[in-house]
Design a protein around this nucleic acid. Structure first.
Lengths: 225, 225
DNA sequence: ATTTAGATATGATATTTGTCATGTTTTGAT
DNA sequence: ATCAAAACATGACAAATATCATATCTAAAT
């Protein structure tokens, strides 16, 4: 079993504020887990017994709407923690997590997190900062959902994925989503997402090879309205 | 000048986790301020030097969208804190706060908050819990914006205001918003908000006297689709 | 009491988005 | 390699929403 204090991943999340000793404690009780593409990590309504630290892979956080459609609220990348919100508020999780890739995650029990929150003010401060940042992002998403057209939202989603998750050597987006997933990110019908992507393709803003998407004109996408 | 340790308002927010001594320290450096209806408390982009504790009155938190329209992201009531997010992440505020009533607020300097966050783990835990709760609420708002119709969103906004801010002795909503504000809450055109409210009135779901709105059929509003 | 700016209301119309139908392509299992 | 299921694509139409125009109401200032 690999050791947390040697794991480079922790540099990307709040765990970086823990001391070597605290990390060794976590190492002693964490469990590692491999998750296949499409597999559910946890489901809306479950009660979590700890947090997941994403060591590799990408997953989506979705919420079921009253009309039965899933909405993708966030994409989670290597280095992020999963489930802190629910752990801290001591409520069941309000989102489901589904792997978009094969993933590797480490599970850290609740008690370990809480003891560090209580005893290490750097750690809790960092957690606070992370949540403050997430809240700001949420505000932005709310305004975009409320005020922008489907076309704009989809253009921004492509730019977001481009900037946050990067591209491979051929310039293709590292995150590969189905058209249905794109629809679920921007909150529209699958057919509408397909149409808009087709239009972007015609206009030379993107090119596609199956599900793979390459952004051809970043500035053009920014100008979509 | 009134004293924080005797102020009942603190029971409604994270300040309740502070000791009597910590509260007396805050009392010593806080300043009280009266704000008139329509006045701006702070504006998007400003750098805050502390948080505001809302002692009386109601205000709206808005964000300017790229298209120039204001979006109301949240309504803030007596007892809430304003500006913690920005303070904690050490960034400029991402929202503007505008009074909907005459208000009284107390301003607590940044240093005071930070020192308590560092030294009192109950306080920082409570702050974390509050943020975790706000994040969950944000997720709900995102899904509603993305998946529900204007009619549904407006019905839910009315129910939300009813439940969170209550009614006066005649059953009229305590929060009085202009039609433009309602449009800005649900993210639609002012005319659309007016039309939907008119329709609700025709259907007997609400009654109106000028800006004042009374909910006549709670269950009916819940059933709107 | 009168005036007047701003808010509310409503019709007509354009635009955006959703829904349903249907056909094509891709993918994965055998 | 073949087949079935799923994903993708597109047309036709319906529904929701925005925009523009104009009329009426309300409240605040004089």
């Amino acid at each position: 079993m690999s050791k947390c204090e040697q794991c480079i991943i922790r540099e990307f999340n709040s765990l970086k504020s823990l001391s070597k000793e605290e990390l060794m404690n976590i190492s002693g009780c964490k469990t590692s887990r491999f998750i296949k593409k499409g597999e559910v990590i946890f489901e809306e309504g479950e009660t979590l017994k700890g947090v997941y630290c994403v060591k590799d892979g990408i997953c989506k956080l979705t919420k079921l709407s009253a009309n039965g459609k899933d909405q993708i609220v966030k994409l989670v990348v290597k280095g992020d923690l999963l489930g802190q919100r629910s752990l801290i508020s001591d409520e069941s999780v309000n989102l489901s997590a589904v792997a978009l890739n094969n993933m590797e995650v480490c599970f850290i029990p609740k008690a370990e997190i809480f003891s560090n929150l209580k005893n290490n003010s750097d750690f809790s401060m960092d957690m606070l900062k992370q949540m403050a940042h997430d809240l700001k992002e949420s505000d932005n998403v709310i305004v975009n959902m409320a005020q922008k057209s489907v076309k704009q939202r989809l253009a921004e989603a492509l730019l977001y994925i481009h900037n946050s998750f990067g591209v491979n050597k051929d310039g293709i987006l590292n995150v590969v989503l189905s058209r249905e997933d794109y629809a679920s990110v921007v909150g529209t019908a699958t057919e509408s997402a397909i149409r808009v992507l087709s239009q972007f393709k015609k206009e030379g803003l993107i090119s596609t090879t199956g599900k793979q998407i390459k952004i051809e004109d970043i500035e053009g996408l920014k100008r979509v309205e």
